[in-house]
């Protein structure tokens, strides 16, 4: 058995004028492919074990009901039907969408303005750039806890400062009408740096000639921004939007850290108005120990994310300029 020539034994059906060349190329390509696969195998194995396999399992589990200690039992679509039994799922879906739309649009708007302002040659700019990026490299757990203290209506800094101005502060995190927006603010604050860095990189690829030409034609700053900067930055805006939408739709940590109290979130009067789909997944899976129900929630979220992302790629032709 010739182990060194596995290709020879399996060469395709003879015929045509090319088999000889093909065999030679095939062997090299195969050897290359082998090493190629060998090189990516650590990543690939990790991906298969920790992402793809659990995803398939989650898909399966969403059609099952779990006993207190495992033992999944097939129950068909009942978990998906249960999503619409009470208002909880639809409320969570609504919260997630409100959070996502607000945080993505506000983050990008602020980041864009800041990026244009920071895209200059001035002293000390790198300090500002660093400052804006710090929240991005801060642990979400720390962000959640610190903001929770800032927001505290009895001892928090925000209400204290408002008090100095003679304004009575609100109950930011325990007023059902405010809590979600308070979380959006934190989401925006922590997300600006990321969008900002990408926008800055995008801005620097725009040739200055365009601006010079526009200046000659007598264009003002606003015209330049809307006619040159924005169109040429659109690929970056598109990329940032796709990524931030996906991230925002999966919001969990801020809600978990800022809303829950000593006895978890169960006693919070605002949990219904703030819980996101991933939070609902967490509650079903880890608090109620209903893994099947939790799987149905995340799978629904997955489908929503896929649809939204797909739609974005279809719609990009209308507004993204790749030149």
């Amino acid at each position: 058995m010739s182990a060194s020539e596995p290709g020879a034994a399996r060469a395709g059906p003879p015929g045509g004028n090319r088999p000889k060349r093909r065999r030679k190329w095939g062997r090299i390509a195969r050897a290359d492919a082998f090493w190629g696969y060998a090189m990516i195998s650590p990543g690939l194995i990790g991906l298969l074990t920790f992402y793809i396999w659990p995803m398939l399992q989650t898909f399966y589990f969403s059609f099952t009901e779990w006993g207190p200690f495992g033992d999944a039992r097939w129950t068909g679509l009942s978990n998906y039907r249960a999503l619409f039994d009470g208002p909880e799922f639809l409320l969570a879906l609504g919260n997630t969408l409100v959070y996502t739309v607000l945080s993505v649009t506000i983050t990008e708007a602020i980041a864009l303005v800041l990026a244009v302002l920071l895209n200059q040659n001035l002293r000390g700019l790198s300090v500002y750039r660093t400052l804006y990026f710090i929240p991005v490299v801060t642990m979400p757990a720390a962000i959640g806890l610190v903001w929770r203290w800032l927001y505290n209506s009895d001892y928090g800094v925000i209400n204290y400062l408002l008090g100095l101005l003679g304004i009575e502060g609100a109950r930011w995190l325990s007023d059902p009408g405010l809590a979600l927006y308070a979380i959006v603010v934190v989401g925006v604050w922590s997300g600006i740096g990321y969008a900002l860095v990408l926008f800055l990189a995008g801005l620097q690829t725009i040739p200055t000639d365009y601006y010079d030409a526009a200046a000659v034609d007598g264009a003002g700053a606003l015209v330049k921004f809307f006619r040159i900067t924005l169109p040429l930055l659109s690929p970056t805006v598109f990329f940032v939007t796709v990524i931030s939408l996906i991230n925002s739709l999966q919001v969990f940590d801020l809600i978990f850290l800022m809303i829950s109290s000593g006895r978890g979130a169960s006693t919070s009067p605002v949990i219904e108005q703030t819980q996101s789909l991933v939070y609902l997944f967490y509650k079903d899976t880890f608090v109620l120990n209903e893994q099947g129900q939790g799987a149905a929630v995340v799978l629904t979220l997955f489908i929503i994310i896929v649809l939204i992302t797909f739609a974005q790629f279809r719609l990009q032709r209308r507004w993204v300029h790749y030149d």
Binding site: N152, S153, D154, Y155, R171, L173, S174, D175, I259, S261, G262, T267, S268, P269, V270
Partner: peptide, 11 residues
């Protein structure tokens, strides 16, 4: 209130 107690625990 319950809201106040979720922000600052009674303990």
């Amino acid at each position: 209130t319950l809201a106040e107690m979720t922000e600052t625990e009674p303990f």
